[in-house]
Structures are given as C-alpha cells and as structure tokens.
C-alpha cells in the first residue's frame, strides 16, 4: 500500500464521521449543512486511475447514505462529481493539457478555485436535492436550497483547503 492510498483511506475514514456527526447537524437557518465530504473528491489525486476513483467515490457516497437514511442519493451525486471532475477542472482553470502528476491547488489563484468548488458543490447539491424530492414541481425549492447550500459549502471547503493544503515546494 503506497502512501497515497493510505492518505485516501484516512480521508475516507475521517471525512465520513465529520460529515454525518458534525456537518449534518449544523442546520444553519434550518437546513444549510456544509458538504465537507466534497473534500474527499477534491483531494483525490488526479493522477490515480479513473475507475478506482469512481468506485471509491461511489462507496464514499453510499456510506454517507447509510448514515443519513437517504437511499442512494449521495452515492449518485459523488459518482457524478467523480466522473465530471477532470473536465470541470480543465474548463475552469482554462488549461487544456493539465499535468496530472504535478497538479496542485496551490498553483492556482483563489478566484478560479472558488469557482471550481462552487460549481462542484452546485452539481453535488443539485443531484442530492433533486433525487431527494424526486418531484419536478419542487424545482424552485430545489434550486434555492442548492444555491444557498453551495455558497456555504464553498465557504467552508475553501477554509479547509487553505488550512490543510501544504504550500511547500516539492
């Protein structure tokens, strides 16, 4: 087991309790919970093979579903993010050929990073809420909740990212 794999395992085991025991009980204004679990998908190394990433994200989402009694909602959302992460990164950082091995968030300035996290959070929350409501007539509620929740998630995730991303050059 390489050190990268151990890191992934530790994140898996730490972020799930953090999400279900603390973040899911914040309920700002009654319903806003930051999705700290997004960090698992953000931090998953880009150079790792995609199929492993898909399976791991699926299992990660399923574990959160297990804790929050929500069917397969989070699994579907995490999986969708895992599949679309690379194209979104390429689009937002305006970089057609990203060097997957040397990719680091600290190489980029803050604005694109915020845009990236917000769009990932938006896709994640939109999938979660649409599947949870499962009813087109709630589209306004879904959009409103998605938007507010993504804003707050972006705020929390960017703080985490700036605290825990190492800035030292390798």
């Amino acid at each position: 087991m390489t050190s990268a794999n151990i890191k992934i395992l530790i994140r898996f085991l730490l972020l799930i309790p953090l999400q279900v025991l603390i973040a899911n009980h914040m309920r700002l204004f009654g319903y806003i919970n930051p999705q700290i679990s997004l960090l698992f998908l953000l931090w998953y190394p880009l150079k790792k093979d995609v199929s492993g990433f898909l399976v791991n994200s699926f299992l990660f989402g399923l574990m959160i579903d297990l804790f929050s009694n929500s069917g397969g909602v989070n699994a579907a959302a995490c999986l969708l993010l895992a599949y679309t992460r690379l194209p979104i990164i390429k689009f937002i950082f305006n970089d057609k050929e990203i060097n997957l091995k040397l990719f680091k968030y600290s190489n980029y300035s803050t604005m694109p990073k915020i845009a990236l996290i917000f769009s990932l959070a938006f896709i994640h929350q939109f999938t979660v809420y649409s599947l949870e409501y499962f009813n087109v007539s709630y589209i306004l509620t879904i959009l409103q909740k998605t938007f507010t929740n993504s804003l707050f998630t972006t705020f929390v995730v960017i703080i985490f990212l700036s605290i825990f991303t190492s800035t030292k050059k390798q």
């Binding site: 898909l54 397969g72 895992a82």
Partner: peptide, 16 residues
C-alpha cells in the same frame, strides 16, 4: 463503470 454504478445508486434511490 460510471453508468453501472449510477444505475445502482438510482436503484437504491427509487427503492427508497
């Protein structure tokens, strides 16, 4: 792989 796993997740959701 994405498609199959997404189908499984949707199956859980619909069953729920």
């Amino acid at each position: 792989l994405f498609f199959v796993l997404e189908l499984i997740a949707l199956f859980f959701t619909i069953q729920f």
